[in-house]
Structure formats: structure tokens, C-alpha cells
Design a protein around this nucleic acid. Structure first.
Lengths: 134, 134
DNA sequence: TTTACTGCAAAGCATTTGCAGGGCG
DNA sequence: CGCCCTGCAAATGCTTTGCAGTAAA
């Protein structure tokens, strides 16, 4: 049986709506804060529990900043990024060079693919100049 | 000026050697433990401090598990992975479909590229069957 | 002596977990 | 009643930072 296709719960729909309303991606903490003042406020634990389920349902994607912080976005938004290994700033790359990329079947290990992340790392312009750690 | 080209320090060389000796990738904690019994033992903080510098020198690459744990490998080893969003197991993918991938200049934001990560996420076979969270 | 690097221990912080309470069939 | 989901607070675990000592230049 594939990804869980049943209806997302109410809370999950609210999270998804918030993510879709945002132009890029949000962390668990941000989502928690963003909903705090709305009628849809929910505890931090609940945010994380549901984000995990949204991922497993194939509705949300996730990547990690160099800090280890996780950022979430709707799966259909295929964003990729450019991150500075020095200062940590991260910029979106539009027009992913790998639209609809797949893995050769021999290597799929029978996984059911949900999404992929493609991230580039390097030094941003100012860190190339500064060249000294912050 | 590009990536810091000066000689890596002694400690950095030791870390690099350890990484090169390993067949896949290692976390900061693993590196710390691995060196513990050798004549090259060093504190955990030192491990992390030098791993960051190795990254900035363009010698080491890094990716994050869904748990947020960071895994390091030599840059020249272009590994990519397949990770289960349910149980978290992660398998290496050989023969990266994107060898020597680059970003179109217009999108490079003048970054000096060091490495990229390409990670696939999905459900592994057993999690597809179980379908219930652990 | 000035600078760079280290160890240790103490934070820091995002995330997870335990557990009791509430909603709903 | 039993199940699922939630909030809260405590615990986890990786990583970073502060600081004083030490080695190098």
C-alpha cells in the first residue's frame, strides 16, 4: 500500500494551508508562532507530530539548514537552495534543473519516492572576501 | 579570493583521514569516538570546530538526517541517499545522476560552489506495509 | 607577548517523549 | 468504555559557546 491516502486531519490541513500561504518554507517553530494568534493555535509538539505525518502522507517536504533546523514546504513547491557554508545565508534557486527527477529502478530499493532535495553549498560573495570566520 | 587554500591544520588532516578511511560518512560524535582511542584523540568541540573549517576549505561535505544529525564525508566522494520518512533508514545511491552538476550562472548569486547534496525521500518497503508509525 | 587553538563544562535550541486530560464513537 | 489526539512540561541529544590554559610564532 502506498503513501497514506486518507484525509489529513483538521490540524494537518491548517498547517498545510499556512505553508501554502507562505512564499517559501517555514520551520516548526515559525509555524507554531504563526498560528499562535489565529483560532488554529496548537502546541509545539502537535505541530511537529503533524508535520511528520504530513511528510509521510506525501504532502510536505522538508530540508535542513546547516544549523540543523528543519524547514518545511508543500511538496508541490519544488524549491532548491544555495547555502553559504560560512555565514549560513540561504537563497532559493528557481527553475530546478532536475524537474521530475527520478532514481533508476535498480537503485530504488523499492522505496516509494515522495520528494527529493537538491541543495548547493558554497561561499557567498561577502564571505569570499571576508575569508575570516565570524 | 576563493576557498581558503592554505594547508589544513594537523587536527583537520586527522579528521579528513578518518573520513577518507570510512566507506560512507560519519557524524561528529562518531568521529569523536573513533579518534578517542587513537593518539589523535580530541575534544568534541574541537571536532565540530574543525569540521566546520574543513567544509569552508571545500574539503568536506555535509548532509543532515531527518533527525537533524549532521553527517560528514570527503567532498570528492559524491554520495547521495534515499531516506525513509517513516523509519528514518537511509541508503546510499551510487552513480549519482547528476555528476558535476552546476547552477546556471544567472542563479549563482556569485557564490563559489563547493558541493551539492541530492537526497531522495520516500517510504521504505517495510514502512509501506506496516503503515503505522513505530 | 601576541595569536591561534584546545579541552572542559556549561549553555542553547530544536525536537521528541511521557503522561494525563478531553473529545468522540 | 476505548481510541485518538492534544497540551504541557520534562527530557534528549547534537552542537555551540565561554573561558582559561597551552602551544606556537
Amino acid at each position: 500500500m502506498p503513501v497514506d491516502q486518507s484525509q489529513p486531519t483538521l490540524r494537518q490541513k491548517q498547517l498545510l494551508k499556512e505553508l501554502r500561504g507562505c512564499c517559501d518554507e517555514m520551520s516548526g517553530q515559525q509555524l507554531h508562532r504563526a498560528l499562535q494568534d489565529s483560532p488554529y493555535a496548537m502546541g509545539l509538539a502537535t505541530v511537529y507530530r503533524n508535520l511528520r505525518q504530513l511528510q509521510q502522507r506525501g504532502l510536505v517536504r522538508c530540508r535542513h539548514l546547516p544549523t540543523g533546523e528543519a524547514l518545511y514546504a508543500p511538496v508541490e513547491r519544488d524549491l532548491h537552495h544555495l547555502t553559504c557554508v560560512d555565514c549560513g545565508q540561504t537563497l532559493p534557486i528557481e527553475h530546478c534543473p532536475l524537474h521530475n527527477l527520478n532514481i533508476p529502478k535498480e537503485q530504488s530499493h523499492d522505496f516509494q519516492l515522495i520528494f527529493h532535495t537538491l541543495e548547493f553549498f558554497g561561499l557567498c560573495e561577502s564571505c569570499q572576501k571576508g575569508q575570516k570566520l565570524p
